[in-house]
Amino acid sequence: MAGLNDDAQWIVMMGFVISFSFFFLAMILNQSTVVGQTTAESVLDFPKNDIRDVRSVIINSSEIGDPDYVHNDIVNISLFRKNAVVNYSCNPTGCTKPYTISIHYNNGVTAYNETYTSP
């Protein structure tokens, strides 16, 4: 280091400090924008509306005696169009009041099981 001019060391150090602070600010800015994306994605991925829909149609169909064709439609269309395995059964068969329905929903990520009791 012989002959090296050691003036202005403070200025050099401040330069380092400022450049590091820019670096960290950029890192924070980078992270902040992904936050909205992941939140919205997790809301969209969770099948809240699918579960509410299928639950409501199952309860509606139990009101008209759980017809076989409707049962078949609900199971098959859920599988083909929503990639969800849905199964349910009425106890006693034919949904004579008072009855309970055990509802099962699974789309591979979210599983939902419920035992519904008729009023």
Binding site: S19, F23, A26, N30, S32, Q37, A40, V43
Partner: peptide
């Protein structure tokens, strides 16, 4: 200094490119 500048540019460019898809998901919801 050149390393720091390269890293900063990389992070800033990354920040602007994820902004659009993130925004679209919020309005989709």
């Amino acid at each position: 200094a050149s390393m720091i500048m390269l890293f900063t540019i990389y992070l800033v460019l990354g920040a602007t490119s994820v902004y659009t898809p993130g925004d679209a998901h919020i309005s989709d919801m």
